[in-house]
Design a protein around this nucleic acid. Structure first.
Lengths: 129, 129
DNA sequence: TCCATGCGCAACCTCCCAGTTGCGCGCAGC
DNA sequence: GCTGCGCGCAACTGGGAGGTTGCGCATGGA
């Protein structure tokens, strides 16, 4: 578990979130929930071309297990709504990756342009073994 | 193409980016590139337990097609480095989804608490048909 | 010149999952 | 009561992604 290496911490825990968003149907579900507010399953099934209710249900389960949506029975239908917490978490991870990378590239560029001794490459984490 | 509905615009174009990040190996590759700077394929193969070079190569191709990394031949090895542009794009999409949703939920909550007429639900996009 | 290294291409295999279908149940409305 | 709508569960299936193996080529160093 913690053997994955690098100091990314719990980065691996957000893999299901990215995987859940990496599907056109699921991403459109998230977008529709964001724009139209909470919706029942049957409402989400309409508007997605040529896919059964059970197919949509499977996608909703994936989104639910990833922590991106939550649901509750309202009468005889199940209402789905977004949860923005996981989205905030992956936004933070992405921000960190961008910042660390840009800083590293800037440092490398400075090293090259200053023609300094390129030995001992800078390492924010570990020298990769 | 433009039939997908909702005013999400080019949201579907970032699906491959999320799909590329939705794999533990690929996400760890991105993290290692972010932390350790540009690396050749053979270096990325080490450190990932029990997977062949071709396996890593496949993942790198996926990341490349998603626009998350780019590569160049340096001598007899292929050097890989991050591209932060697509990361910035999906950060923007995620930010928008969070903001729109939170605003909508806040408006709904205000409607309920003010006990106003709950008819004609607010719609930032379209009333979902 | 010769050898080791790192990469690219192609074929092959395995297995997981997206999607369908069928059926039954619970709730809303008449 | 009865009927219809929306949902949940289970079994089945096809296709594609992930991974390996084998081979050949180009490059760098002795």
């Amino acid at each position: 578990m913690t053997k994955g290496g690098s100091c990314s911490g719990d980065l691996q825990s957000v893999v299901p979130v990215f995987a859940a968003l990496g599907d056109p149907i699921r991403l459109s579900i998230v977008a529709r929930l964001s724009e139209n507010g909470p919706l029942p399953t049957i409402r989400l099934t309409e508007g997605v071309g040529a896919i059964s209710r059970q197919g949509i249900n499977g996608h909703l389960r994936v989104l639910e297990e990833a922590g991106l949506v939550e649901s509750a029975r309202v009468g005889r239908m199940r209402q789905w709504q977004l949860r923005t917490q996981k989205i905030a978490i992956i936004r933070k991870h992405l921000e960190r990756i961008s910042i660390v990378w840009d800083a590293r590239i800037a440092a490398l560029r400075a090293l090259v342009e200053d023609d300094a001794a390129p030995l001992s490459p800078p390492a924010l984490c570990r020298p990769e073994r």
